[in-house]
Protein backbone atom coordinates (compact mmCIF):
# COMPACT_ATOMS: atom_id res chain seq x y z
CA UNK A 1 0.00 0.00 0.00
CA UNK A 2 1.40 3.41 -0.91
CA UNK A 3 1.40 6.37 1.42
CA UNK A 4 -1.23 7.96 -0.82
CA UNK A 5 -3.72 5.13 -0.40
CA UNK A 6 -2.95 4.91 3.30
CA UNK A 7 -3.65 8.60 3.74
CA UNK A 8 -6.89 8.41 1.76
CA UNK A 9 -8.04 5.27 3.55
CA UNK A 10 -7.34 6.67 7.01
CA UNK A 11 -9.03 9.97 6.08
CA UNK A 12 -12.15 8.06 5.01
CA UNK A 13 -12.24 6.01 8.23
CA UNK A 14 -11.68 9.11 10.35
CA UNK A 15 -14.47 11.05 8.63
CA UNK A 16 -16.83 8.12 9.22
CA UNK A 17 -15.85 7.87 12.89
CA UNK A 18 -16.23 11.59 13.51
CA UNK A 19 -19.64 11.69 11.81
CA UNK A 20 -20.72 8.77 13.99
CA UNK A 21 -19.32 10.47 17.10
CA UNK A 22 -21.07 13.72 16.23
CA UNK A 23 -24.44 12.16 15.49
CA UNK A 24 -24.49 9.82 18.51
CA UNK A 25 -24.04 12.84 20.77
CA UNK A 26 -27.63 13.90 19.98
CA UNK A 27 -28.92 11.65 22.78
CA UNK A 28 -26.66 13.14 25.47
CA UNK A 29 -27.49 15.94 27.86
CA UNK A 30 -26.26 19.39 26.72
CA UNK A 31 -23.04 19.58 28.76
CA UNK A 32 -22.19 15.94 28.07
CA UNK A 33 -22.62 16.62 24.36
CA UNK A 34 -20.55 19.72 23.71
CA UNK A 35 -17.01 18.39 24.11
CA UNK A 36 -17.33 15.20 22.00
CA UNK A 37 -19.04 17.25 19.27
CA UNK A 38 -16.32 19.91 19.15
CA UNK A 39 -13.59 17.27 19.01
CA UNK A 40 -15.44 15.21 16.38
CA UNK A 41 -15.80 18.32 14.23
CA UNK A 42 -12.09 19.10 14.50
CA UNK A 43 -11.05 15.54 13.66
CA UNK A 44 -13.52 15.34 10.75
CA UNK A 45 -12.37 18.62 9.21
CA UNK A 46 -8.68 17.73 9.67
CA UNK A 47 -9.31 14.38 7.98
CA UNK A 48 -10.92 16.16 5.01
CA UNK A 49 -7.89 18.48 4.83
CA UNK A 50 -5.63 15.42 4.88
CA UNK A 51 -7.59 13.87 2.02
CA UNK A 52 -7.54 17.08 -0.06
CA UNK A 53 -3.81 17.61 0.50
CA UNK A 54 -3.12 14.02 -0.48
CA UNK A 55 -5.19 14.29 -3.66
CA UNK A 56 -3.38 17.51 -4.54
CA UNK A 57 -0.09 15.71 -3.99
CA UNK A 58 1.00 17.62 -0.88
CA UNK A 59 0.02 14.95 1.62
CA UNK A 60 2.32 14.20 4.52
CA UNK A 61 4.62 11.28 3.88
CA UNK A 62 5.81 9.31 6.85
CA UNK A 63 8.09 6.60 5.64
CA UNK A 64 8.25 3.43 7.63
CA UNK A 65 11.23 1.14 7.72
CA UNK A 66 11.84 -0.55 4.40
CA UNK A 67 12.69 -4.17 3.81
CA UNK A 68 11.08 -7.33 2.58
CA UNK A 69 7.52 -6.17 3.18
CA UNK A 70 5.84 -9.50 2.38
CA UNK A 71 7.81 -11.52 4.87
CA UNK A 72 7.51 -8.88 7.59
CA UNK A 73 3.78 -8.69 7.25
CA UNK A 74 3.53 -12.46 7.37
CA UNK A 75 5.47 -12.55 10.64
CA UNK A 76 3.55 -9.77 12.34
CA UNK A 77 0.31 -11.16 10.90
CA UNK A 78 0.82 -14.55 12.54
CA UNK A 79 1.88 -12.83 15.72
CA UNK A 80 -1.29 -10.73 15.76
CA UNK A 81 -3.32 -13.86 15.15
CA UNK A 82 -1.62 -15.56 18.09
CA UNK A 83 -2.28 -12.51 20.25
CA UNK A 84 -5.98 -12.51 19.41
CA UNK A 85 -6.25 -16.25 20.11
CA UNK A 86 -4.41 -15.85 23.39
CA UNK A 87 -6.78 -13.08 24.45
CA UNK A 88 -9.84 -15.05 23.39
CA UNK A 89 -8.62 -17.96 25.49
CA UNK A 90 -8.53 -15.92 28.72
CA UNK A 91 -12.27 -15.97 29.50
CA UNK A 92 -12.37 -19.70 28.71
CA UNK A 93 -9.24 -21.05 30.36
CA UNK A 94 -8.26 -18.26 32.76
CA UNK A 95 -5.25 -15.97 32.54
CA UNK A 96 -2.77 -18.56 33.82
CA UNK A 97 -3.48 -21.32 31.32
CA UNK A 98 -4.12 -18.94 28.45
CA UNK A 99 -0.79 -17.24 29.07
CA UNK A 100 1.12 -20.52 29.31
CA UNK A 101 -0.28 -21.43 25.91
CA UNK A 102 0.06 -17.90 24.58
CA UNK A 103 3.71 -17.40 25.52
CA UNK A 104 4.58 -20.87 24.23
CA UNK A 105 2.81 -20.39 20.88
CA UNK A 106 4.09 -16.88 20.38
CA UNK A 107 7.56 -18.00 21.39
CA UNK A 108 7.39 -20.83 18.88
CA UNK A 109 6.60 -18.25 16.18
CA UNK A 110 9.27 -15.73 17.12
CA UNK A 111 11.93 -18.32 17.89
CA UNK A 112 11.69 -19.92 14.46
CA UNK A 113 15.11 -20.15 12.97
CA UNK A 114 16.85 -19.60 16.29
CA UNK A 115 15.56 -22.03 18.89
CA UNK A 116 13.21 -24.95 19.04
CA UNK A 117 9.66 -25.19 20.31
CA UNK A 118 10.88 -26.90 23.47
CA UNK A 119 12.69 -23.76 24.46
CA UNK A 120 9.49 -21.76 23.96
CA UNK A 121 7.60 -24.07 26.29
CA UNK A 122 10.28 -23.80 28.95
CA UNK A 123 10.32 -20.01 28.69
CA UNK A 124 6.53 -20.03 29.04
CA UNK A 125 6.56 -22.27 32.12
CA UNK A 126 9.31 -20.40 33.91
CA UNK A 127 8.18 -16.85 33.21
CA UNK A 128 4.44 -17.31 33.56
CA UNK A 129 4.95 -19.50 36.64
CA UNK A 130 7.19 -16.94 38.31
CA UNK A 131 4.70 -14.13 37.78
CA UNK A 132 1.80 -16.28 38.86
CA UNK A 133 3.57 -16.98 42.12
CA UNK A 134 4.52 -13.33 42.60
CA UNK A 135 0.93 -12.18 42.12
CA UNK A 136 -0.89 -15.00 43.87
CA UNK A 137 1.35 -15.34 46.90
CA UNK A 138 3.10 -12.03 47.44
CA UNK A 139 0.81 -9.37 46.00
CA UNK A 140 -2.46 -11.19 46.75
CA UNK A 141 -3.77 -10.32 43.31
CA UNK A 142 -5.49 -13.50 42.12
CA UNK A 143 -5.30 -14.19 38.40
CA UNK A 144 -8.71 -14.23 36.73
CA UNK A 145 -10.04 -17.75 36.26
CA UNK A 146 -11.93 -19.16 33.29
CA UNK A 147 -15.03 -21.26 32.93
CA UNK A 148 -13.52 -24.18 34.78
CA UNK A 149 -11.73 -22.24 37.55
Amino acid sequence: MTQRTRNLLSAAVLVAVSVFWYLSAADFRPLSRIFPRVVAAIVGISAVVLAVLTILGHGPVIRLASGDAGERHMRSGTLMGALVLWTALIPVAGLLLASLVGVAVMGAITFRGHHGTGRAIIVALVSVGAFYLLFQMVLHVPFPVGLFG
Binding site: L96, I122, L125, V126, G129, Y132, L133, Q136
Partner: peptide
Protein backbone atom coordinates in the same frame (compact mmCIF):
# COMPACT_ATOMS: atom_id res chain seq x y z
CA UNK B 1 18.43 -27.25 35.40
CA UNK B 2 15.78 -25.23 33.64
CA UNK B 3 13.68 -28.38 33.15
CA UNK B 4 13.92 -29.16 36.84
CA UNK B 5 12.85 -25.63 37.67
CA UNK B 6 9.90 -25.98 35.34
CA UNK B 7 8.79 -29.18 37.03
CA UNK B 8 9.04 -27.59 40.46
CA UNK B 9 7.04 -24.60 39.26
CA UNK B 10 4.38 -26.83 37.79
CA UNK B 11 4.10 -28.64 41.08
CA UNK B 12 3.68 -25.39 42.97
CA UNK B 13 1.11 -24.21 40.45
CA UNK B 14 -0.93 -27.30 41.12
CA UNK B 15 -1.06 -26.75 44.89
CA UNK B 16 -3.53 -23.82 45.03
CA UNK B 17 -5.85 -25.75 42.72
Amino acid sequence: GIRLLAVILLAILAVPG
